[in-house]
């Protein structure tokens, strides 16, 4: 019976870990509907005041528009870059392939604050700083590795004869890319688009440094929390949470659905 009680203890322990991980998310949602400016227990009354405030705030709309532009452009750019790398890695063996892959995959291992400073300095040096597309360039570098990883995983599942089979039936290499490789990778491409959009949508350190006056939503949140306790943050956070979750769930649906149907009944 000792094994069973240990298992139960571990189960409760896991629950505690989940409580710790999800407490801030859950409280943030609760606080966003709570009337108190400084929420505590017992809770104040239910209100949509904070949502009304952010929807009436032109600064929030401006930031939302910027975030939308940035994450949309980033996800397209990062997915193209990630796709090129994944395909090169799948198809070719070449000298310096190790350094080539490192060049693409390393950015996420460097602390964002360091990337932020480095990009700020470099962008002002080459004259592309303070623009919305400064953030787009920076984010595409930071998120391309994720796109690469997802698409490369998909290419692992391809029958290596599929490309030669298309050539064999009269398709040039370019045509084969369009008719075979891209359709085969489609679920992974969509996953990569959603995932990189979600990461870009939440990134604040680099965006804060290189954005100049063009604030994205997370940068706006950063500025609001630097001031006072302001429950608008919870409302924005809750709103952003549901957008991000939608993107992630879409990415999962596209990718996991395909992974599961991969098994060939042969």
């Amino acid at each position: 019976m000792r094994g069973a009680s240990i298992t139960w203890a571990l189960r409760i322990y896991l629950l505690l870990i989940f409580t710790f991980v999800f407490a801030p998310i859950v409280f943030s949602v609760i606080f966003s509907f709570n009337s108190d400016r400084f929420p505590t227990i017992p809770l104040g009354s239910f209100t949509t005041e904070w949502y009304a405030k952010i929807f009436a705030d032109s600064e929030v709309w401006e930031a939302a528009r910027n975030s939308l532009i940035v994450s949309l452009s980033t996800c397209i750019l990062a997915t193209i870059l990630g796709f090129c790398t994944a395909y090169s890695d799948y198809r070719y063996n070449f000298k310096f392939k190790g350094p080539y892959l490192a060049l693409v995959l390393l950015p996420p291992t460097i602390p964002l604050i360091i990337m932020a400073l480095a990009m700020l300095a470099w962008f002002s040096k080459i004259g592309v700083s303070g623009q919305l597309w400064s953030i787009i360039i920076a984010h595409s570098v930071l998120t391309a590795p994720f796109a690469m990883a997802i698409i490369r995983l998909r290419l692992n599942q391809i029958d290596p004869n599929l490309e030669p089979a298309a050539w064999n039936l009269g398709a040039s290499e370019w045509r084969t890319m369009r008719e075979v490789i891209v359709p085969f990778c489609k679920p992974a491409i969509f996953s990569a688009l959603f995932l990189t959009a979600a990461i870009s949508f939440d990134e604040f350190a680099v965006a804060w440094f290189v954005s100049g006056l063009n604030k994205t939503i997370p940068v706006l949140v950063l500025e609001i929390v630097q001031g006072n306790i302001d429950p608008r943050v919870n409302a924005i956070g809750t709103f952003v949470f549901f957008i991000s979750m939608t993107l992630v769930i879409l990415a999962q649906l596209f990718f996991l659905a395909r992974l599961n149907t991969k098994a060939d009944p042969q």
Binding site: N161, N168, F184
Partner: peptide
């Protein structure tokens, strides 16, 4: 060519 793996296009 008819391939050992058949190489049919799954999509």
């Amino acid at each position: 060519m008819v391939w050992q793996s058949l190489a049919l296009f799954p999509f």
